[in-house]
Design a protein around this nucleic acid. Structure first.
Lengths: 357, 357
DNA sequence: AAAAATCTGAGGCACGTGCCTCAAATACCT
DNA sequence: AGGTATTTGAGGCACGTGCCTCAGATTTTT
């Protein structure tokens, strides 16, 4: 049987009221009394029963995922996962919303963040490209008592905020390793394309990519990054131009999370069959291309895992406990035609049952 | 504010006692009353507050991980993860133990399983190779009211039990795809080695491996599987013999989770520098070899993720809710030198703080 | 119609913690 | 010493659900 606050009080030789004061950091307790209680905690291995505490406090964890307003398949998949997990966590008094509120403009993002109140939300996961303004607004959020994790966009391992997502430098490096390996010592150019280089993510991926390509695959030369700015027509134009100027392109790396438009532009080109192509994220269209051998590999972050990690992290912060670093480290996953698995069929929420009788 | 059983009672026009009878499947309630309550549940979107329920029931979830008695680095890593997560979950009334109790002999396993009592444990994660006897014992466990997941060992997607782990067929296929890709159209033989082919895991991996190698890489021919039976000396002998008999070996696939001994035997061979080598799992020794370019790729299941998945699954079963299938699908991760990341440093439990004031 | 069986309601205690009040005890200051 | 400020204790209610009892209502059987 686990010790309760009652046991703690007896062990420490104080009353339950004092135990309560110590446990919840209320003022007006003598130093030596505090220590007596803490010793008792250590001796008994006391651990506060979170269920009971949350019940008593009528505590509900409210977390918002703040997502870009514009987005494609990958973002849609994220939203689905957020909703699914939210449904799953409701019984545990965790309420999760996915909100498509972030504009491209950093100032708008700042405004949105500034409007958040601790009365409405306990923590937010923000998916916005890094900028000094946003960074500032985030800090102010924290001061107001709202916990924050950087979600997918942002930099790995940079304090002071928790980050959930893959290490983009490593992701780019992995892409280069795969591309180089699959190119079979061919000589030629590599096309690199993304939606926009404004986001830190793409910049990081590019750095990692170049590093490995230069050190390990001297026979391949990467071209400057092409940017589609989310415009399919523009994508077609710049890709066509690239193929015209560089007839010896042997590989393509699509860096952005949303890969549909760039891939479409590339596959229109008549030499696509001889190309080694690597892209990011698992979506309807990328999976389809992978299965049809149009695409050689996908570098993926598991949407379900990132969502759950973000929530776990926010909850840990709210409870004032230090999360385990190793636990929420998102690994870069590589998807080949051979390891897609049967996971395309997704059970929908409506398939689930109510609590059994 | 979320509806409570009180609200439910009012909405359904019955008393709280009746609501309780329906919610907990107690007998002695008229059909139409049951329906009235269920309608009210649907109308209000009522969801039982698990915290309160568990508190009232003084419920503690007790889960055991039953692991093989013999094992190496990978198993040790699993144990660490189990302990860490156990620590993490204690506040939520989940108690997790890692027990190294399973012998190689299926009959011993059966005996161990038969000794489990629902009074001591609510669910178990079993890491044992499949056999009819074990399967039987598992069924009987279930009949006694103990929930079961097959853990890591076992078959993906085979009912009636939940399985947590990678799809081994796909893992083998992935290995072949990488090996073939990295071999640069070289012609020759591929060495395949494992601890034992008795386990279904290795058998499945081998099938997947052969399938892709045969269909996609006709220039490579895989040799029959070598078995070390966990004996380093034997590993050295059989590997030496293989290299003697087949001077044209260009690649190696180490299938077993514990790869240290086979890899050591292979790297003793003086041609190891020209070999493409693929192994499984992220351990001290495999990581080290990967970093030193002795190894080309690792196919990995994330120990933290599998452990958490298993626990989440067991808890869902205990609460009588259907787990989301997609959620606990463990993806095959591929580790290259380029995407190891800085994650080798692991925060230990002692670094963590007590609940903040 | 009477008796028996079945169903329903009212109420209360328990779980472990948070939070409150009020009085008593102790420490500190002048 | 007396007074004030600080620290501690005792007790109780609340949170939402599980589980119990017992009486009253309704239905079924005899």
């Amino acid at each position: 049987m686990r010790p309760t606050t009652k046991d703690l009080a007896r062990e420490a030789g104080v009353s339950r009221a004092t135990v309560d004061r110590v446990l919840n950091g209320r003022p007006g307790v003598q130093e030596k009394t505090v220590r007596a209680v803490q010793d008792a905690i250590a001796r008994l291995g006391f651990e506060r029963n979170l269920s009971a505490a949350n019940l008593a406090k009528r505590r509900v964890y409210r977390f918002d995922f703040l997502l870009p307003r514009e987005g494609g398949e990958f973002l849609a998949e994220l939203e689905t996962q957020i909703r699914d997990h939210g449904q799953q966590m409701r019984a545990d008094s965790v309420e999760i919303r996915a909100r498509r509120v972030l504009e491209r403009d950093p100032h708008q993002v700042v405004a949105t963040l500034a409007a958040l109140s601790p009365d409405e939300v306990d923590g937010v996961a923000i998916m916005a490209s890094e900028s000094p303004q946003v960074r500032d607004a985030t800090l102010r959020l924290n001061e107001r008592g709202i916990h924050v994790v950087q979600f997918i966009s942002g930099q790995h391992g940079v304090r002071p905020f928790d980050f959930v997502g893959i290490d983009n430098h490593a992701a780019g490096a992995t892409a280069a390793r795969l591309l180089g390996g699959f190119c079979n010592r061919l000589q030629g150019h590599v096309l690199v394309i993304t939606e926009s280089m404004n986001s830190l993510d793409s910049a990081e991926r590019r750095l990692g990519f170049d590093h490995v390509l230069n050190t390990r695959f001297a026979e391949l030369a990467a071209l400057p990054t092409l940017e589609t700015h989310g415009d399919p027509a523009r994508a077609r134009t710049i890709v066509a131009a690239a193929f015209r100027n560089f007839p010896d392109i042997v590989g393509v790396y699509v860096m952005s999370s949303e890969a549909a438009a760039p891939l479409d532009a590339i596959l229109r080109h008549d030499r696509h069959a001889q190309l080694t192509i690597i892209a990011h994220e698992r979506t309807e269209s990328t999976l389809d291309l992978l299965e049809r051998d149009r695409l050689d590999a996908l570098i993926v972050q598991n949407p379900g895992h990132v969502v759950r990690s973000a929530v776990r992290l926010l909850k840990s912060r709210c409870d004032g406990r230090q999360p385990l670093a190793s636990q929420d480290d998102i690994r870069i996953e590589i998807l080949l035609k051979e390891n897609i698995g049967g996971a395309r069929v997704r059970q929908t929420l409506s398939d689930r049952q109510r609590p059994a009788p």
